[in-house]
Amino acid sequence: MTLVAEEVRIEVPVSGAPKRGVVSRLVSRLGNGFVQLLLALVALFWLVPVFGLLIASLRDESANTASGWWTVFTKPSELTLDNYADLVANQAVWQSFLNTFYIAVPATVLVVVMASLASYALSWIEFPGRETLTVVVVGLLVMPIQVALIPVAKLFGTFGLFGTITGVVLFHVAFGLPFAIFLLRNFFTGIPRDLIEAARMDGATEWVIFKRVVLPVAKPAIASLTIFQFLWVWNDMLVALVFADQDSAPITVALRAQLRQFGTNIDLLATGAFLSMIVPLAVFLVFQKYFVQGVLAGSTK
């Protein structure tokens, strides 16, 4: 930018308040216009792929194989909801869509409950080994789930949990906990000590302090965690690929079988992928603040 020019201008006697030089203003405005244009193009770049998928999901098979989705601008009459109707009528796909809820909701609730309890103990109850335990949790943040796939598959086999929704949920809970505890502990320790001590002076039990003092204060953190965990589980493929069977598979795994003939069944895949995206996109748009906070905190996962 043209800071030097500005200073020179200011020394020139001008009437009225000191103004920025014409050249400086022009360059700044042009520069700004350029930045605006560049970022607008970048944003467009980010939107086009999603838009393409959406349009592809709204055109039938013959239209998709005959021409690209961008031709829709000249042939808007090709748009149809038939693919969605077909998909919803497809028993297996619809069941997998429901399964995704059956997996994501309990996996989220359990993680939030267990992590809140544990984080309270790690933050406000003194016990030997608290420091070590906290460090272990921090260490587990980046644990690759691959190390647990084979042993847990065996374990689930023994207990009859392999190929069940319960099994998938339990695995998600286990690998959701370290981050959940980490996030909530960070928040809980930030609660003013006086608040907790005052409650203890009044003779409140730990349970009561947890429920009446900590939880209400921690609502934003819990909201972030809930949304992050829900989307994390909703979007999973690998865990379900290993632990779910055909009847308990979420939508990502159910659609996987269609990948082999990508070119010819874009209509089905695009529709299925978009159906699976509707929930995350809605959650994201409604709760973006909490979600962004959750992702920033949970990025290490």
Partner: peptide, 18 residues
């Protein structure tokens, strides 16, 4: 630009396959 973080890697994969 943050939006892709919300959707599954599976869906992103389909998007880019297309």
């Amino acid at each position: 630009l943050f939006m892709p973080m919300a959707i599954s890697l599976f869906a992103s994969g389909i998007i880019f396959r297309l």
